[in-house]
Design a protein around this nucleic acid. Structure first.
Lengths: 395, 395
DNA sequence: CCAGTTTGTGCAGTAGCTGTACAAACTTAG
DNA sequence: CTAAGTTTGTACAGCTACTGCACAAACTGG
């Protein structure tokens, strides 16, 4: 179809693995050749390298989909059954989720456990326990998504405010318990990457992603296939963008931050439901959505207000990021599905450079985007340099 | 010194040319070898390629600076005298500047001409006239800086508002007059690139740049050596960030935009000097600065206010871009030199993730940053693929 | 003058391709 | 059922852009 000018890994072998990955782990050889823009003979060489290392297998009688009108049918390339996998983990406010994920985004196993306490040690113990449980032979590494900005150099979790931590050397603490390669990332960043590679962000050149998790509002930009991380890894934290100077006070010291107006706190406050324990929040939000759909005026108005604030926040961000696609994850995606007009009103034309088409806004397409994003993080070394990773595994 | 993990061109030959360029066109062979991270023997091969194409020359008895304690002294690598050059042009509100620039950033010739009318055709005629005048043999191409967002795909100038144009296919119009490769860019973007490669932004991993020209306020982010352009090329237009909801009305429809509060209009308005023809603005601004330094309270207060607005704008941007350096160009640089405390007050600690050092704010270090940036744009193909460009020239 | 150090160079070897020629596997026309 | 036409995989030669090694060159200090 279109030209494959999306993203380029360091070498061809890497881009090949990436293409196979974004295509879900199965693709016809001809399709891969076209996407890489190389000759058939180079593809033969590259597939030979991958096959000899056990990453892919080839089924000569695979893709008999036959869109072609004549000609020899192309072989199917698929991720090998016994190909290496990674472990993806998500640290939430009151739960931990871990999964084993293969190239192509296939989830081989998935465990979730709720945290009874909000103690750091408890969370770390549960995490390492589940990770160890899911670790199998040929696991390349672990990716962990955290609801906090994460320093790119060393995996320091700068401010997991909602977990009550004020800065934790998370990677270091976990490495004491786990003898595996471990990479950490911010949950919104990783979810954005997952949506970019497998979900609603596919094919965008500049993807702007916003999501709300349990508490707080995170964001990310994927620019030409790569996360826009910033110098330290703290870029694109839109939670404290001011959307209403006369709005509610925010723990950060300012007032009317996007985060306190459009996340779960904002919704519940606008709906007049503030008497919830923290772990009941998802249920309370669920209730507000249900009653709004059922016709409750106060809950409906709460959605209206959150949607307007979200639209205003997006309007500010659009001119800075110049996105060609916007994806909304978590509760924001649901909010948008119900109140798209209120959001669009503020996005449309607010981009002060209106040179043609509008910017499409979409709800996230992946149910487990954060967890999948953690897998993307762990898979990254394989995409960057497949040979080194695969050969290193053998040793 | 530090690891050379700054930026990577597509191939080694490109990075070599880039290194030589950022080092000002002269470097010791040993230094280049270290920065590229390759062996001495590869450097020999690479330099051979460049020398055979006439781009560099080598002086065996060059850098007798001798920091070393013993050992054979390294040869000097320098841009050849007859190496190809580029033509850089800057389209201003009431003037046009054109220069011939060589690798390393050396300006060989420079012409400036003021525009009497504000007619598009007049500007284009003057531009192509001066460019033709400065075009010499072995000119690789032309780079043009425009005070407007420029669409990356085709050089369409989306909104040179201050020139009275509402969208002009500028590249197309100029190509009718000039038979040369022509690349267009936004002036602030290009200035940022110049500061990154040759000025106050050197070595930053995430550079946030803001500047004011004649009218308006532009910005850019250089992220790991590359401009953050966005999907269309309109990213990082911070002019219409709201810094004072109760502020002055902006032509964009909003109020209190950073642009109308901190650019020349804002300064003159705050100083009570609004009766100026457009081309007198620089002189009027000059006056305000002079009188403020001399002690005039109203002019001083005008600087104070602009500095505060600038600081607030920066505070919003810092959390989004996660810059490790901020450079202020044009009048903003001067404003900062005089009112750094008022700006710093708002920048310091406003980055809600205060994990250590503050972010350095610096005034721009290049007197002709926009023009030099236009040269960077024209040189880019040479940095991306030196062989193809140099061989193509011969044909 | 000699050891010690850093640097340029020649040469063999390798990785990662490209291009060409050809055989294989299909479709449709006759 | 065969022949022509089309697209695809593969073998092989060749090239580019390096890396590594051995060695010579150019300095310093003793």
């Amino acid at each position: 179809m279109g030209p494959p000018a999306q993203e380029r890994a360091r070498d061809s072998l890497g881009s090949l693995v990436l293409q196979l990955h974004t295509l879900g782990g199965v693709a016809s050889r001809a399709e891969l050749t076209e996407r890489l823009g190389c000759g058939r003979s180079a593809m033969g060489y590259l597939l030979g390298e991958l096959r000899s290392r056990g990453l892919v297998s080839i089924d000569p009688a695979g893709g008999r989909t036959s869109s072609a009108d004549g000609g020899r049918p192309s072989h199917s390339v698929l991720v090998a059954d016994d190909a290496p996998t990674v472990v993806a983990a998500q640290l939430g406010v009151d739960s931990v989720t871990v999964a084993r994920v293969g190239l192509g985004g296939k989830v081989h196993a998935r465990v979730e456990r709720s945290l009874r306490t909000r103690d750091t040690t408890d969370a770390l113990d549960t995490l390492s326990e589940l990770i160890t449980e899911l670790t199998a032979p040929k696991v390349l590494g672990v990716g962990l998504a955290v609801p906090s900005p994460v320093r790119r150099t060393d995996g320091y979790a700068a401010a997991a405010l909602h977990l009550g931590w004020r800065g934790v050397p998370l990677r270091e603490l976990l490495l004491e318990r786990l003898p595996l390669p471990l990479a950490l990332g911010n949950d919104a960043n990783l979810a954005a990457m997952a949506e970019y590679r497998h979900g609603a962000g596919k094919g965008a050149t500049q993807l702007l992603y916003l999501m709300t998790g349990h508490v707080g509002l995170g964001g990310a930009v994927v620019s030409e296939g790569r996360l826009f991380l910033g110098a330290r890894g703290y870029a694109m934290e839109p939670g404290h963008l001011t959307v209403d100077p006369a709005g509610a006070p925010c723990p950060c010291g300012s007032t009317g931050c996007l985060e306190v107006e459009a996340d779960h706190r904002g919704l519940l406050r606008a709906a007049g439901r503030t008497d919830h324990a923290l772990h009941d929040v998802p249920e309370a939000v669920e209730e507000v959505f249900k009653e709004a759909v059922a016709g409750d005026p106060r809950c409906g108005a709460a959605l209206d207000q959150a949607a307007r604030h979200l639209g205003n926040g997006l309007a500010s961000l659009i001119n800075l990021a110049d996105a060609d696609r916007i994806v909304l994850g978590g509760t924001l995606g649901r909010l948008y599905s119900l109140r798209s007009r209120l959001v669009d009103e503020r996005v449309t034309g607010r981009s002060f450079l209106n040179d043609g088409g509008e910017i499409p806004v979409l709800p996230g397409a992946l149910p487990d985007s954060v967890l999948l994003g953690a897998a993307e993080l762990a898979l990254q070394p394989l995409l960057d340099d497949p040979k080194r990773v695969l050969d290193g595994l053998a040793r």
